[in-house]
């Protein structure tokens, strides 16, 4: 569980990136943090594993104040995958890259071996075991970065902008993967601008703007409220925009899923046809 209690954070440059944020993320939840560029999303999630410490207020991870424990200790619980994989890859082989964190945490060699194999498998990287990470494509490098964090099996997983530059197939794989994590009762927090991706996953959405949380709730509710979204420079997903236009026919306005939308339209259409007959 992550508890953020009235946190303020100011960078040394004087930018007040967080201005009183309170948030509770329970175990097993899937949360998407959204909001405009510079809203403070990355700053907020960097507090979850202690990379940043609040200037004011507290962040508790499983009851531990992040101020009292080292990043390394917190990292065991909270896995953090950065936006750009090139900011972390440095090893000669993919295998070594994944083992890096396990060595830092002092796992035994035979455990390391088992974990590496497991992580390679999970992300479909087994064939690249002995390849240099620098030889891989962007999408693959991103998966190596993810595997290198998953390897130690953290309870909480944070992904900063996981969909940037990814094609549809890769996004779909990522979605499946997150659902799998959810099934294992892991907490997953993603930071993203990708409205359509969020609409497909339907997580809890936390909306940020100017260092504050401006809305918090399930995706189908938040992503279908244009007035709320506007504050965070977000545009409702396409399906929602269709339904917002169609409210005059008595359609629900909180639809974001293609198939749900299809069923509603069909029902309405069939009912209308029956009337005519």
């Amino acid at each position: 569980m992550i508890e953020v209690k009235n946190v303020h954070f100011t960078y040394p440059s004087g930018v007040e990136a967080l201005q009183g944020v309170s948030l509770k993320i329970r175990n097993g939840e899937f949360v998407a943090i959204m909001g405009q560029n510079g809203a403070g999303k990355t700053t907020l999630v960097k507090h979850f594993n202690g990379l940043l410490k609040p200037s004011k207020g507290n962040v508790l991870v499983d009851g531990m104040d992040t101020r009292d424990v080292s990043v390394a200790t917190l990292a065991r619980k909270v896995g953090f995958v950065f936006q750009n994989p090139d900011h972390q890859l440095f090893s000669e082989t993919v295998e070594e890259e994944i083992a890096f964190a396990l060595r830092n945490f002092g796992f035994k060699e035979n455990v390391i071996k088992r974990r590496v194999t497991w992580a390679l498998n999970l992300l479909g990287l087994t064939q690249y075991r002995k390849t240099s990470p620098f030889m891989l494509s962007g999408g693959e490098r991103k998966r190596v970065a993810l595997a290198s964090v998953l390897a130690w099996n953290p309870k909480i997983l944070i992904l900063d902008e996981p969909t940037i530059g990814q094609d549809y197939g890769q996004k779909e794989k990522l979605r499946q993967f997150i659902l799998q994590m959810k099934a294992q009762k892991k907490t997953v927090v993603i930071v993203t601008h990708d409205v359509e991706f969020v609409a497909e996953c339907n997580p809890r959405v936390v909306l940020m703007s100017n260092g504050k949380i401006v809305a918090d709730g399930e995706a189908r509710k938040i992503l279908t409220s244009p007035e709320i979204l506007e504050k965070a420079a977000i545009i409702p997903p396409e399906i929602s925009r269709v339904f917002l236009e169609l409210s005059e026919f008595g359609f629900p306005t909180n639809v974001i899923d293609v198939y749900e939308a299809g069923e509603i339209i069909l029902d309405f259409w069939e009912a209308k046809n029956r009337e005519h007959v």
Partner: peptide, 20 residues
Amino acid sequence: IGIGIPKVTRLYQFLNGKGM
């Protein structure tokens, strides 16, 4: 090929498949 076909186009295809 698996490109990200727009959601509204997919909605159209869904309706089409059901006879609308």
